[in-house]
Design a protein around this nucleic acid. Structure first.
Length: 317
DNA sequence: GCCCAGGTGAAGC
DNA sequence: GCTTCACATGGG
């Protein structure tokens, strides 16, 4: 990888919370900056099934965050950032990427067992993002029994149909914001099904209606205890414990949330209960005690490792 | 063709 | 309580 200085463009450094010094370039009329980071695996973070809109493009990663087109590229000790329009305050993107979180104490808090050691060795630098609650909730409603690549396709279609076009630098594909709940609340189930979401369409529609009407206040969940926030989420049709925990972890940062999906089930059974027939309930109960206090992070490491590296090593004897 | 995918809800025991 | 099944769709 090349460093920021070697890329031929002046990239400003944004190390302080308040000070930003944009470097505008003539070539594409876009805005560039960079974030100094340590222990940040950008590819693992953006492609580990937390968020579904990041695409590899021109040597970096491209998506829409909020209403802004964003392109990121990993270089040693920094993330290069490009946007289409001027940005005065980068706090929204720093928050999303969690660049100011020190990963070392998190990894140190993992249980010291063979599974976690292998998972950390395989993808050290994997981070949890901090996403918009509505986009996260809607995305995971669409995730059930779908492969990640198919979730990406459905969400791409949903955004193209119902999102707002956002400004994009010349030479990049058209991009759209994630459609607001108020927008989706007013579309038909058939229109949603046209985006290939199948039986999930009525679930997404009902969630959009409850959020748009204020019956479910997503912003307020941030201040609730985990159990209260979870119970409000699972009151939505099509949202069970697993999807609720994804939202609690990826949008709100509740570290006690531990989404148990098919990959995490495989990882837990193979490593911690080899040869046993443990139920989902048992795995849930185990996960609630074994991985604290950084259970959410531990889950994401186990998930990404099991999905990308194959089987976990045998338990120590 | 067949099995499976970052599940959930309803029905059946 | 627990287990089984339907639900759309498409990748491998």
């Amino acid at each position: 990888m090349r460093s920021a200085r070697e890329l031929g463009t002046v990239w400003s450094r944004d190390n302080s919370a308040g000070h930003v010094d944009d470097a505008r370039t003539e070539d594409c009329h876009s805005v560039k900056t960079s974030f100094t980071v340590k222990n940040y695996d950008l590819e693992a973070t953006l492609a580990s099934g937390q968020a579904f809109r990041w695409r590899p493009e021109q040597g970096g990663w491209c998506s829409v965050v909020g209403a802004r087109w964003v392109w990121l590229r990993s270089v040693p000790a920094a993330i290069l950032v490009q946007t289409a329009e001027p940005v005065n305050d980068w706090s929204w993107l720093k928050e999303y990427l969690q660049v100011e979180v020190d990963l070392d104490p998190i990894l140190s808090a993992f249980p010291d067992d063979p599974a976690m050691r292998a998972a950390v060795a395989a993808c050290r630098g994997l981070r949890l993002l901090r996403q918009d609650p509505w986009e996260c909730l809607a995305s995971f409603i669409l995730s059930s029994t779908k492969q990640i690549i198919q979730i990406q396709q459905v969400i791409t279609s949903l955004c193209a149909c119902f999102g707002q076009p956002v400004a994009v630098p010349a030479g990049h594909l058209p991009s759209y914001s994630f459609p607001a709940a108020a927008r989706l609340a007013n579309v038909s189930e058939a229109a949603l099904r046209a985006c290939k979401m199948g039986f999930r369409a009525p679930y997404l529609l009902e969630a959009a209606r409850r959020v748009a009407s204020g019956q479910l206040n997503l912003a307020a969940l941030r201040h609730e205890p985990l159990e209260e926030a979870r119970s409000q989420l699972v009151s939505l049709p099509g949202v069970g414990r697993k999807i609720a925990d994804c939202v609690l972890l990826f949008a709100y940062g509740f570290q006690a949330a531990f989404p148990v999906d098919v990959w995490v089930i495989k990882a837990l059974r193979e490593l911690y209960f080899p040869g046993d027939r443990v139920s989902l309930k048992q795995l849930q109960a185990f996960s609630e005690t074994h991985f604290a206090p950084q259970a959410g992070y531990a889950q994401q490491y186990l998930f990404h490792y099991r999905r990308t590296q194959g089987r976990l090593p045998a338990r120590e004897s």
